[in-house]
Write a protein that binds this DNA or RNA. Structure first.
Lengths: 163, 163
DNA sequence: TATTGTTATACTCTATAACTATA
DNA sequence: TATAGTTATAGAGTATAACAATA
């Protein structure tokens, strides 16, 4: 039905044919992700961490004593990326890391008072962002929408990465 | 309603609490985008352009004589990013650029035979990717899903970028 | 040997700013 | 002045690989 070769015509009037790009769900996914990302960043203003760092700090606040391996597994980031983020956060007084005696390989992270405070401020802004996003999506569509996103993440790799 | 603090427990058995991250639609969007992106890349194997370059080449194939400004506007990329891509594609024999007499500022791009051939091969792989993605989404949900993504892109910036 | 984490390095993708050349 | 495009540079954001310490 929606196969009207949805062209993009600029202000100059020229119609740009999108061809197969028209069907690329990935392009819509990226555009939506970028829009959501930008909305959150705009709401944070200057008082913020990068989104990836916010994710990590939030995991630490919610799970005091979490290890870097656990953070990486949960946030789906390589341990080296986590290490870099943690070092920055420690240098900036947001987290402290402890090496327990029972296993001195691991580094357990906890948020400092400053870390907790920043996370709370960012979470508050995050909730405003979510309210705007949810208003756009609509409560009637929200669950089905997220469920579809989840299924893409879970089921697509099984089909695709068979080489 | 869905506030059961959907935790993530790793193989070690420890439950990681996601807290507010649980509600972050942006995380699901990014994960889904990355999954789609990876699936496409896996299918392309070595015979490929980067996804952004494929977008540009496809625009050129579908719109011979398109200008760089038009490409940038359609692909939502800065002219400098487009210029870099075009130079690489020209150096690698995929496109040629012409400067018309009526306006010698503009560069109009056309695909070479090699460019057309590569685009066709990539488009074929892209269609396989889309088939897998559409199978995951399901034809009954597809239109509503894409419509939601579109609305996020179109409506969210209006609410968020008011500073 | 396996695991945790660190570091150096590099890659992808993209934008900003200063620029040239045209119009 | 405004527009099209180029170039140098920078900076997220992330991963790979080699490594040290510990188990």
């Amino acid at each position: 039905m929606k196969d009207q070769q949805a062209d993009s015509d600029g202000p100059n009037g020229r119609e740009i044919k999108l061809g197969v790009l028209n069907d690329f769900v990935g392009m819509y996914l990226r555009a939506a992700y970028e829009a959501a990302f930008t909305d959150f960043a705009d709401r944070l203003g200057e008082d913020r961490l990068r989104p990836g760092y916010f994710t990590i700090l939030t995991l630490i606040v919610n799970n005091p004593g979490i290890s870097q391996t656990e953070i990486g597994r949960t946030a789906r980031r390589d341990k080296s990326s986590v290490a870099k983020a943690l070092r920055w956060m420690e240098d900036n007084g947001l987290v402290t890391r402890l090496r327990p005696n029972h296993d001195r390989r691991t580094h357990l992270s906890e948020a400092t008072e400053e870390g907790y405070a920043l996370q709370r401020r960012m979470e508050a802004r995050g909730r405003e962002h979510l309210a705007a996003l949810n208003a756009t999506i609509g409560s009637d569509r929200r669950e089905a929408f997220i469920e579809t996103l989840r299924e893409i993440v879970e089921r697509l790799p099984e089909a695709g990465s068979s080489d």
